[in-house]
Amino acid sequence: MNAVDFSRSPHRRLNLLTGEWLLVSPHRALRPWQGQTENIGGDGRPEYDSTCYLCPGNQRAGGEKNDTYDSTFVFTNDYSALLEHTPVVETCEENLLKSVSEPGICRVICFSPRHDLTIAQMEVAEIRGVVDLWHDQFKELSEKPEINYVQIFENKGAAMGCSNPHPHGQIWAQHHIPTEPGKELAQMQRYYSRHGRTLLQDYLAVELRQQKRIVCRNESFVALVPYWATWPFELLILATNHHPNLLTLSNQERTDLAAIIGEVTVKYDNLFHTEFPYSAGLHQAPTDLADHPEWDLHMHFYPPLLRSASVKKFMVGYELLCGPQRDITPESSAELLRNLSSVHYTLEEQSEIG
């Protein structure tokens, strides 16, 4: 059998977390590109915006007034996708049309009182405040008997459907385990039952040996482009020690998580000199009162940008009809991100001017 160079030839990669396959076509990355390559900087937002419903002291659309907060701030979403007191009811029409009600809680977290910042522009101590709030919210929500899964996430940028640039994220806590974490749970349980070890700890050991897809790391966390990455600059943050959720992190590990989130988001912004859009979220063990020795805390970053600040990847054609596909290999993406500065490009530009 002839050897195949997977860095140049079409091939499929298995997503260990979902059990699904991805088509990789690295030869397509060599085709000529005559599209946009411009950089787009920030929009010069003020530190405080009197019209912003997330800024301190301002009135929200639902009529409530924000606290005059000076660090982080959390409130129940005025237009929640989930409602806490929804009764659990199942229906099935003609043995085919099945529905089940979904009680839950949706909260909004403001990362900073400053309207003009993003996570990438915050100090590690400020991001640590966000991590601490994530921890406290997860603890509170996970203790509610009707809540079996807590999803903490951030949509950054208009490209990801974020309608307000004020730095913020969300928490959706619900009765049933959602689809994507459910896929990961099945894969993790299957691997743990066979090997007596966790899937992600074994996977991280492989990545640390190969060093091909590592972007950055510290004592407690590693950021890498996963072997099965779908999005051009997708990242996965993994803990070097086994943790099912935020509650088992030490004080230093919380700081290290804040630090690596800060470093990753700075590299993203530096890639195209823009406020790099993404959807990011923590995947933690379900809160269904079952033991989950198979689960490792991890964080996904799914950014849409492909070749510049305005050229995005979309799921179209083959991807909608068959499955995900990418051109640039995860190894190439990791190398590009790894070699970027960890100092935000706006600060470097200021030092050059000075």
Rank of each mutant, 00 (worst) to 15 (best):
L82K: 02
V316F: 14
L96N: 03
H175P: 10
V74W: 02
D116V: 07
E154R: 03
L16W: 00
T329V: 11
T86E: 14
L82G: 01
E180P: 11
Q174W: 00
Q36V: 10
E38D: 13
L97Q: 06
W231K: 12
K312G: 01
L23I: 06
M188H: 12
R338Y: 05
Q121M: 11
D5L: 00
E234L: 00
T76K: 02
G281D: 09
L236V: 05
F73H: 15
K183A: 08
Q189L: 05
G169I: 05
L305K: 05
D269M: 08
V74K: 00
A61G: 04
G354W: 03
L199H: 10
V222I: 07
R326Q: 12
R31A: 12
R128H: 13
K212L: 15
R194W: 02
G19M: 06
D43Y: 06
F272S: 01
E219P: 01
N39G: 04
P330W: 00
N241R: 14
F6M: 05
L337W: 07
G157E: 06
L235Q: 10
F111S: 02
L224Y: 12
Q187P: 03
L14T: 02
E219R: 12
L200Q: 13
Y79P: 00
S99N: 14
C92T: 15
R107T: 03
S71L: 10
K156G: 04
Y227T: 04
E90S: 14
N95F: 13
G41D: 02
P10G: 05
P46M: 03
L236K: 09
T198P: 07
R197D: 11
S7I: 04
D288S: 06
Q201H: 14
N270Q: 09
L82V: 01
V150F: 04
L224Q: 03
N164M: 10
R28C: 10
I353Y: 13
E126Q: 15
G42S: 14
C322M: 12
S220F: 04
Y203S: 13
F75S: 06
Q325A: 13
M299P: 00
V124L: 00
P103H: 04
A239P: 15
G196I: 05
R13L: 08
T274P: 11
P145T: 08
F301P: 09
A81Y: 01
P113F: 09
P145A: 08
L97D: 11
Q211S: 11
S220N: 08
P167E: 00
G35Q: 06
G62N: 15
T179M: 13
E275Y: 08
H298A: 02
V108I: 15
Y191R: 09
F111W: 01
P46L: 06
V24M: 11
P103E: 10
